[in-house]
Nucleic acid binder design. Structure first.
Lengths: 269, 269
DNA sequence: AGATTGTTTTCCATATTATGCAATGCTTTT
DNA sequence: AAAAGCATTGCATAATATGGAAAACAATCT
């Protein structure tokens, strides 16, 4: 195959693994199932090569073949791997463990989300007894502007990844005003919205994402003051979004508890 | 290198990739960072090999070196990958697509339900060729105790939300014994019922909700082990509810196929 | 129908690429 | 200081991945 280019200054590694991971990356960029030949074209690999790699991935459960369409997609093993990686960050574990308590104490449905996959992704949720909705499962990607969760990320998440997404969603919202009817998503309005959210310490939304529902969301902050995750409470009573409400108090306390707290001098040993 | 084991019956694939994925699997099992040599020992690989593989993984962001301790850990790329995969696993859609197959193969009417609106709600159904049923349309809310579907949710759905609903329905059933004529819905009986259902892997009902009809139901589980949806088969022949029946086998296999399955780590010894 | 195009999958000879070992730095322990 | 453990790099060998061709399979058009 005449690999003439020696431009690779990379230190040791496995070339076949690099190719395999390039393949995985390509699969990730697609939102859904991809055909083998399409992958081959994108990665500039012969189909036979792609086929063999996919066979190995498939054995490990990282990819799977969707139905009988023959197309390939990321599989459950990838989820396991990702959640395992996520679990290394202890705030995820602590928040997951405490989520049921928050749910029962508040009587509301509680969600734990992290930023990933170009959106706020729900990784854990605890349903309340009261009649809320379903169809909001794990892995749901919440909209940035019209969900309390998304807004909390907008206000507290790392800038870099959000800038682009934000811009994209603003364009989308402008084209489709039904998505954000009462929000004129100019840069100025966004700044104002973010300012308001940060000032009051939590984000809220009434019936935007799902009519009839209200939600409040607060961030779990790391040592840099950026949102590592967002906790959301969903209910039906409009009262819960009010600044003084018990639900707000509980939510904010919960997140503060889990957020990074600078060491006090008294702790010095 | 004298690979004596010919135990590999596996079809085509990349051996080095298999080794790499075995490595990833080993890293997954550790809760935190691992040293290179430790990995090498566990996977029975020479350290140099492990080092080269890790270099490739690191370049892709799948693993990273924790601080300057030199230990390796799963990295942000793994999280991204997992979240991307998580978003694709829309159980409801996948089940919807596959439902017609289940229907034709089993010759029975198939139902797909999710939890919502204080009950098991039918969101998709596929009628069997034989003209049995029924007046059951989309959006029908099935009773919790007297339908196979409801019972499956009872057995596998998240505890917290169901406790209340369950209690409410018990009260209702007591007031209206026609709904649950042969079931004394005490807490003890409920526990026993749930235990039986979980033990046999599916819920069944004979002629309770609709006289003359029998039904079996099994859950589609997410990675939390909770029922995201329930698939139900309805027929007239009492034989289908028997544990060994073909219908039961098909149903359970169907749900298992759609349920979340963790990553398999190939331990070819 | 049959023909045609586009897939996915298997086979095989070749040499590219991964391999294990040994040697080298590098850090931590005795 | 010496020793032990670990991470990293070089090297010759052969084991392994490679691309092309062709077989199996599916879908679309004439």
């Amino acid at each position: 195959m005449a690999k003439d280019d020696k431009g690779e200054g990379q230190t040791g590694g496995i070339q076949s693994l690099d190719a395999a991971l390039r393949l995985l990356g390509a699969m990730m960029e697609h939102r859904g199932p991809v055909s083998l030949s399409e992958l081959a074209r994108e990665c500039r690999m012969p189909p036979s090569k792609v086929h063999r790699y996919l066979a190995s991935f498939q054995r490990a459960g990282l990819v799977e073949q969707a139905g009988r369409s023959g197309k390939y997609d990321l599989g459950p093993g990838a989820v396991t791997l990702g959640l395992s990686a996520l679990a290394r960050h202890d705030f995820v574990n602590r928040a997951s463990d405490a989520l049921p308590d928050l749910c029962t104490e508040s009587g509301l449905t509680a969600l734990l989300s992290v930023w990933g996959n170009q959106g706020a992704t729900v990784i854990r949720w605890e349903r309340a007894a009261s009649p809320t909705v379903t169809s909001m499962g794990l892995g749901t990607t919440l909209p940035l502007l019209n969900s309390a969760t998304g807004r909390a990320f907008l206000a507290w998440a790392p800038q870099a990844p959000l800038q682009a997404i934000r811009a994209a969603e603003i364009r989308g919202a402008r084209k489709n005003p039904a998505i954000a009817p009462d929000l004129a998503p100019t840069e100025r309005d966004l700044e104002k919205l973010v300012g308001t959210i940060r000032a009051q310490g939590y984000a809220s939304v009434e019936g935007k994402f799902i009519p009839g529902l209200v939600a409040i969301a607060a961030p779990i902050l790391d040592w840099q003051g950026e949102a590592q995750a967002v906790v959301t409470l969903i209910g039906t009573d409009p009262g819960v979004v009010q600044p003084g409400s018990e639900a707000v108090a509980r939510l904010v306390a919960f997140c503060k508890e889990l957020s990074f707290a600078p060491m006090t001098l008294a702790d010095a040993k």
